[in-house]
Write a protein that binds this DNA or RNA. Structure first.
Length: 501
RNA sequence: GGUCGCGUGGCCGAGUGGCUAGGCACAGCUCUGCAAAAGCUGCUACUGCGGUUCGAAUCCGCACGCGACCUCCA
């Protein structure tokens, strides 16, 4: 039958700020690197949004036929807290607070991160490297950068020489910074006397005596710089130049800018061909962030136990909510928006259930169904436009419901779908909804045992008896009280069915 | 202060020059003992002021409002 056009895929390259056709370096293979979490505290919903964006990207690339190596790191060393704690490792600080070994903290929050990823149905990356497991490679990269003259040692630390690099290369290309402007905007450099320029950044940092996480190096005991691990691990597993690097918008500068500089300084190669940046999740217009204190954990989300939440929402509701906006737009969290998504997702999944029961008549795939299918692929291939794709699926929902003979509506069932149409729609909805968007049917909240279904069949039969004798008071009482228990009864043409509300 | 971006109907949120996005909410109708679900119909917006154009939410300028980054952050 009519074949769909699955390619080409276009994405917005934030390096060029243009939408470009995606052409892998070595098709059909694709190298994808995404900056993972720093495992020193719980991930919040804003983090989840970013990882979800790249989860869908990963899924989409595979769906359209690429073989993807997806690398997402775990940052378990190295980032500084703030001025007060200058020189002290973030993870070490937390360890002291909680009286735990640093690696215990790392393990704890890594486990927590994985739990969250499972909850939101994110696929595991191909490789999930940790910074602490790549210290040798990081030291080697520092050595290469020094050897090439773009870094210098000072008092046991090693700094990247930004002005020297910028003299020859385009430092600031990704984030649109200009070195003069950066210099004029520099804050006070207190405690940074070792740096030749305030723009220089540490690629190896000397550890103070009280520092808990430190390793020997040619420059003494210390730990790797903030941006080094991503350069090292992406190079190691994807090559000196690879296809796509993703991360949150807030990592663009300085993190990703420094990654580019490091790779060029160390190996002379531009590391990334396509940069992708996901936008922020906001709450009342402000970025959700640890420092803002406006984040909530997935656990709080599910239970609704947080001052921002009117009630709890399921992980799939949230996932659907996020995918109903474009990844490059900011997305504002609100209870009203969550409830709208909840209803929408229910409607979508109900249509999928209906679709499973449809038989369909004779005939070929209709042009309308073929067009719907193509529209979904086109939307996804246009910079991964999930909201448009979902809008098309909702058009499909109307088609499905209109073709449903079990519906009691007069006009329903009039729209004829062929058996081929039904099969095609099943394939499409399964692919888009579950495989690509990564949604899944919610597990039944209440234990859905055979016993419960038996009880329900009994209740339905008793209610049918009451209705048969026009005892509507009793039949309504049964239905209303079931509603109070979270069970909905629907009278359809094919009989009465029940479901969890 | 610098850089970048945003401002769409009751709410969320797509859309980059002309042709109804979609979801939620709301109203009417169909169906129905009543509901629920579903279908149909209605609600037709683009911060303000100029400009370009036959034509602008969409391009340009200015103003106002908001945000992100410039410091760890998805």
């Amino acid at each position: 039958m009519s074949s769909i056009k699955k390619l080409p895929f276009h994405l917005t390259n934030t390096l060029t700020r243009k939408k470009e056709e995606f052409v892998p370096l070595n098709p059909p293979h694709v190298g994808l690197y995404v900056c993972g979490p720093t495992v020193y505290s719980d991930v919040h919903l804003g983090n989840v949004r970013s990882f979800t964006t790249f989860d869908v990207l990963y899924r989409w690339l595979m769906h359209i036929g690429y073989k993807v190596r997806y690398v997402r790191n775990i940052t378990d060393v190295g980032h500084l807290v703030d001025d007060i704690d200058a020189g002290e490792d973030k993870i070490a600080k937390r360890a002291r607070l909680e009286q735990l070994e640093p690696m215990e903290i790392v393990q704890k929050y890594t486990n927590g991160f994985h739990d969250v990823m499972r909850l939101f149905n994110l696929r595991n990356p191909s490789i999930e490297p940790t910074a602490t497991a790549h210290l040798i490679e990081q030291i080697q990269m520092v050595e290469r950068i020094i050897a090439n003259g773009y870094a210098y040692e000072a008092n046991g630390s090693v700094y990247f020489d930004v002005p020297k690099f910028a003299a020859k290369y385009n430092y600031g290309e990704l984030s649109g910074r200009k070195i003069d402007e950066l210099l004029s905007n520099t804050r006070d450099t207190e405690g940074q006397e070792e740096k030749r320029s305030p723009l220089d950044f540490a690629i190896w940092k000397k550890a103070e005596a009280m520092h808990l996480m430190k390793w020997p190096s040619p420059w003494g005991e210390g730990f790797p710089g903030w941006h080094l691990e991503c350069s090292v691990m992406s190079t190691k597993y994807l090559g000196q130049t690879f296809d796509i690097h993703g991360g949150g918008m807030d990592l663009k500068f300085p993190h990703h800018e420094c990654e580019i500089a490091q790779s060029i300084a160390a190996d002379g190669t531009t590391p990334v061909r396509y940069w992708m940046h996901g936008n922020m999740l906001t709450v009342n217009g402000r970025k959700m962030a640890k420092s803002e204190g406006n984040g909530f954990t997935p656990e709080e989300l599910l239970t609704g136990n947080h001052k921002l939440l009117e009630r709890g929402y399921s992980a799939m509701t949230v996932r659907f909510f996020m995918l109903q906006s474009h990844y490059a737009s900011t997305l504002d969290f609100s209870n009203a928006a969550m409830q709208a998504s909840e209803k929408g997702l229910e409607k979508m999944l109900a249509a999928v259930a209906t679709l499973d029961k449809l038989k369909g008549g004779s005939g070929d795939v209709s042009p309308e169904v073929a067009a719907l299918e193509q529209a979904c692929y086109d939307a996804m291939n246009d910079d991964m436009n999930t909201p448009i794709m979902i809008a098309h699926l909702f058009d499909g929902v109307r088609t499905i419901n209109s073709a449903n003979p079990a519906s009691s509506a007069g006009q329903a069932g009039k729209l004829a779908l062929s058996g081929a149409d039904v099969e095609r729609l099943k394939t499409l909805f399964n692919a888009m909804l579950f495989e690509v968007l990564g949604l899944r049917k919610e597990e039944e909240v209440v234990g859905n045992s055979e016993a419960l279904d038996g009880v329900m069949q009994l209740m339905i039969a008793m209610r049918a008896e009451a209705k048969a004798t026009k005892n509507f008071a009793l039949s309504d009482k049964i239905r209303d009280q079931l509603v109070a228990l979270g069970i909905t009864i629907k009278d359809t043409k094919d009989g009465t069915v029940w479901e969890h509300a």
